[in-house]
Design a binder for these strands. Sequence first.
DNA 1: GAAACTCGATCGATCGATCGATCGGAGCAG
DNA 2: CTGCTCCGATCGATCGATCGATCGAGTTTC
Lengths: 211, 211
Amino acid sequence: MNVSVRTSSGAVLPASVGADDTRSRLLHAGLEMLFERGYHGTSIRDIAVGAGVQSATLYGHFASKEELLAELIVLGHEEHHRRLIDALMDAGTDPRDQLRALVSAYVTGHAEFAMLAIVANAELSRLSPEAAAPARLLCDRSRELLMTVVSRGVRQGVFVMDHPEITINAIASMGTSVALWYPPSADHLDVGVVCDTLSELALRLVLAPTP
Amino acid sequence: MNVSVRTSSGAVLPASVGADDTRSRLLHAGLEMLFERGYHGTSIRDIAVGAGVQSATLYGHFASKEELLAELIVLGHEEHHRRLIDALMDAGTDPRDQLRALVSAYVTGHAEFAMLAIVANAELSRLSPEAAAPARLLCDRSRELLMTVVSRGVRQGVFVMDHPEITINAIASMGTSVALWYPPSADHLDVGVVCDTLSELALRLVLAPTP
DNA sequence: GAAACTCGATCGATCGATCGATCGGAGCAG
DNA sequence: CTGCTCCGATCGATCGATCGATCGAGTTTC
């Protein structure tokens, strides 16, 4: 499991970002600014100051302000998708265990990278269609994973749903919302407890009633 | 000389906004622009053009760009809170019926005013603390309504939960997410069906297992 | 005619982006 | 080792465009 890179600011990025070079500091500063003030509310000068460089230096690492945001968003969706895959690899063959694994991956990912998750979802619409395409693809892939697990459970008769699409949306929203409410109350709630609780709640939504 | 320029608007506001005067058109145009480009990405000139007036005219109806956004956000949270109250009034005394009523109010409100709901939630953090205070108050009140219904159900032994806060967050996120996914697929899914489905899903999260 | 409303023009500030100049370390020649 | 070149990274300065906001004059309404 990857170790996350933490800066003094609370802006946490996946380890794939790498060392504490200028590019990494620009991404961290950019994430923090984009989280606090949004895309159009953040100037490249703000980001540069946060990274301890001049604004012109940014263009030595990114073609444009939009490309920096696109890079952050793809990072977020990549990390999320990777965690879902990893979770399924260790989950065995029981649809119940697979759903628990997916929800736990949602929770841990959105708790650990709350800032990144919020920015990746909220600011995706600020990108041009071309710049947003890679992230949208990853987003669809992640959703398909959830859909696949649920459909398989239904086919095996373990899960029963009137409207699978609605139920999947409900489960996904439960998972993503962790990024919004967990961080402020992280001091009195363990991540593992949230994982177990939300996993059981998700199971209640899909499980066939026991006779 | 006023020409009624109806934008291709999916920008829907509560009836309390009133007639088709300049102020109303500014709010509608503002909502649409804020939804598409965000607060800092929307200029007062964009809003004015959308409303068919000059940018200076905006300041005859709002003290600042921020006040226009604050007005929209409060409108959204007021409408949401009012609908929750109304729903409870007609729900009787059974906690199950009350929870169904609340979830249905979430669904209908976030389906009918999807744009407003998204803007009201996403752009709230762009407001200064003073400007955001009224909306935050309404937000807390709405959450308290949900918490009150659930707590009452627990006290009566109808509901059982390990972690009420997590469960309430899950229910609320299920409801608010309707604004994100329902509109694009509105053509093949009735609002009433979504209400019934999500209400039953919410009940599964809190209902004590029947022996 | 008073009041409310809207307009065109314009303010200083800040935006994203670009430019040539400068810095510092790696590599090579002797 | 010294002296030199080279090159990517970074800097300070600056571009045209656009930002939120303001003003006085013109228009509409009653």
